[in-house]
Nucleic acid binder design. Structure first.
Lengths: 164, 164
DNA sequence: ACCTGCGCTGTGCAGACTGTCCAGCGAAAA
DNA sequence: TTTTCGCTGGACAGTCTGCACAGCGCAGGT
C-alpha cells in the first residue's frame, strides 16, 4: 500500500478526496466519509484533525446567501484613498455591514471592496454610506450582473492534491 | 412569549442568533445550540430546516484556505471581452482552477475575477493562462496586499435580523 | 368574542455516531 | 537493521440525531 503523506505541508490525494467529499455532502460525518473513501474511520479523523490544525480547513461554518437574506444585489467598488488615511478608511468600512469583504491592492493605496444591497436603488444608499467618509477620494463601482463562477475551491484543491 | 416569526421570508432575531452561534462554533450541533440559545431542541431543528429550505443557509461545507494549500497570492483581474465571445470566455475561465470566482459586471460586458497563485512570479503564469484566450481584449490586474475585512456575513445577518 | 393555524415547549425512544484507546502491520527513514 | 509513523480493525461508553406527540399561547380571520 502506498504511503500517502510525507513530511511538511500540502495535501495528498486522500486529503483532496476528503475535502471534495465534504464539500459535496457536508452532513455525512466521519464514519460515512470513511466508508465512502474506503479507509478506516481513524484515518479520516486523523486527516481532518491535521487539515484543521494546518489551517487548510478553517472550519465548517454556515454558508449564508446574502440574496436569501434580502440583499440580492452585489457590487464591487474600487476606492482611491487619500494618503495616510488608510487605517481610518479600513475601520469605517469594517463598520458597514453591507461591506462583505475589503482588500488593499496594488496601484496607489487603492482598495477593492465587495458590497451588497437590497436593490439597485438601495445600492445608492450603501455607496453613499461607504464613500461618504473623509479619506475616500474617488470610488468606481461595478454592479454584478451574473456570477458564472461562484466562489469555489474544489478545482484548486484537486490541483493541489495532484501536485503533491 | 413573543411570537418570533411571521409570514414571508427574512430572518428574525432567533435565526440571527442561531446563525451567529453556528458561525462561531460550527461543531456544536443542534442540542448544544438549543441550550446556548435557551430554546427547545425541536425549535432549533425546525429553524435550521427552514433556513436551509429557504436557501439562507446553503450548507456547511469546509472553508478551505487557499494560502494553506500553497496559494498565498490573491489578485483581482478586470477583463474586457470581445463582443459575442462572453460564453467562450466564461467556459475558459471556469476551467482554470486558479480562478476562484467570476462575475460579469456593468461597464461594457466586462468581467471581474478572483485569482490565486503560488507566488508573485506564479501569478504571471496564471494571468497568462487566463488572458491567453481569444476573446479577452484587455486585462487589468490588482494584486491583493492586505485583507483588512475577510469575507464575512455576520454583520449583515445581524442587520437583517434587526430589520425583521 | 370565538376559532383556527402555527410556532414553541418538553418529553420519549430507537438507532447511529463520536471521541478515544489499543495492538498489529507494513513501509519509509535513520 | 532498527526506529518511526501512518493506517487498519475493533471495542466501549457517552452522546446526539431524527422523529413523534400532546399541550399551550398568540395572531389573524370569522
Amino acid at each position: 500500500m502506498a504511503k500517502g503523506r510525507r513530511a511538511g505541508m500540502g495535501i495528498d490525494a486522500l486529503d483532496g478526496r476528503l475535502i471534495t467529499l465534504l464539500d459535496r455532502e457536508p452532513r455525512i460525518g466521519v464514519l460515512e466519509a470513511s466508508r465512502r473513501l474506503g479507509v478506516a474511520r481513524g484515518t479520516v479523523q486523523a486527516r481532518l484533525d491535521r487539515l484543521q490544525a494546518q489551517g487548510v480547513i478553517r472550519g465548517f461554518g454556515p454558508q449564508v446567501d446574502p440574496a436569501a437574506l434580502g440583499y440580492p444585489v452585489t457590487a464591487f467598488a474600487t476606492l482611491e484613498i487619500k494618503q495616510g488615511l488608510g487605517a481610518d478608511v479600513r475601520a469605517h468600512l469594517a463598520s458597514v455591514p453591507e461591506v462583505l469583504e475589503l482588500h488593499t491592492t496594488t496601484g496607489e493605496g487603492d482598495m477593492l471592496c465587495r458590497l451588497v444591497a437590497r436593490s439597485n436603488g438601495d445600492l445608492q444608499r450603501v455607496i453613499d454610506k461607504v464613500v461618504g467618509f473623509e479619506g475616500i477620494v474617488r470610488a468606481a463601482t461595478a454592479i454584478v450582473m451574473e456570477n458564472p463562477v461562484p466562489l469555489r475551491i474544489i478545482p484548486l484543491v484537486e490541483q493541489a492534491a495532484r501536485d503533491v
